[in-house]
Nucleic acid binder design. Structure first.
Lengths: 195, 195
DNA sequence: GTCTATACCAAGATAGAC
DNA sequence: GTCTATCTTGGTATAGAC
């Protein structure tokens, strides 16, 4: 540990970061070791990368594992900060914004899960447990509403990517504002303070 | 045309159908001509397929074009039948079910659009125009609600695929029923007949 | 219009010098 | 721990016989 000072042992990290980017963008088969080497600054085309990882598969798994850990930590951090908000409406707004941010944060992992889910099965469980979605055998009406909110935000995210602009030109703020109105109209348990 | 009777000229069609399946499942790079040949019943590994299509790219485009045309026809057919329903609640239920069916119908195209959108840019426009989503510069509150419903259904579909079961165990019926309740509570313009 | 054979190349991976 | 060189495989695509 103390031996390596100037030459940061960061190469491995940079490989993992670049790898996840390329995997998410190009898929497993579309990703070439050469491209990753190029991005990291290693001589492209040489197998220099194999001094760090034994195979392309192993690289994918390591990259996914690292990404899950990082994003998860970020999310928990951000959620803790949410607890401070007292105003119900504001709190709800921030909750949904947070959910959307979480989804975006997980974007690279989502795309990987959609495409390479079979290649890294643990990925599925890791993601859903990280998002802490309540899964019951017999979901209540409340669970269904929560599922709708999540699905709406997830769909909004993906459709926006597909359209290359905010989905149907509905801005994030308008989307969340309207979604809150819908959800709260069905669950008037917690009346908003101001209004 | 009249020359070819017994040996159905269907080979081309079967290639297109198989190709879209493989492209959607494995992505462009993950798809091999060999695999498609195998599925169609041609000798695998030989370039027999190239008697029908000049290149892998051309095959992808042809397969997408055909799929768009087929699904679109299906959808228009199904929509026409919807007009007959008079009861508002029933009509709405069928509308949403229809929307979900449309989304599922387009599943292979969606996945392709997500992954190979850049390779077949026309695909994007074709899909969204087929779904007839209203896109305004300044979406109204009503547009936002429509967007939420579509996003929710789309998200439900994709998340269900990701989880490999109905999303969070919320069944399709429960999801749609709850979604209708939400949407209609915000738009009490059209009161449900029975209730 | 389907097969055999094959050219060609990109990419994963390894050995060994420095 | 990075480079040079190289092996090997698998996949696109073509030529030509039947």
């Amino acid at each position: 540990m103390a031996t390596n000072q100037t030459t940061q042992p960061k190469t491995r990290e940079r490989i993992l970061e670049a790898a996840l980017d390329v995997f998410a963008d190009e898929g497993f088969n579309g990703t070439t070791i050469t491209e990753i080497e190029r991005r990291v600054g290693l001589a492209a085309g040489t197998g220099s990368l194999y001094r760090h990882f034994p195979s392309k598969e192993a690289l994918l798994r390591a990259a996914v594992e690292r990404e899950v850990k990082l994003r998860r930590a970020e999310m928990e951090q951000a959620r803790a900060e949410l607890q401070a908000i007292s105003d119900p409406l504001e709190r709800r707004t921030q909750e949904f914004k947070q959910m959307l941010r979480d989804i975006r944060r997980f974007d690279r992992l989502y795309r990987l899960m959609l495409n390479e889910g079979d290649r890294v099965p643990e990925l599925r469980e890791a993601i859903w447990s990280a998002l802490q979605t309540p899964v019951r055998e017999q979901p209540t009406e409340q669970d269904a509403i929560t599922a709708i909110a999540m699905a709406a935000l997830g769909g909004y995210h993906l459709f926006s990517i597909m359209q290359g602009r905010p989905f149907n030109n509905v801005s994030q703020d308008q989307f969340i504002r309207t979604l809150i109105a819908l959800v709260d109209s069905a669950r008037p348990t917690e009346p908003t303070s101001s209004q």
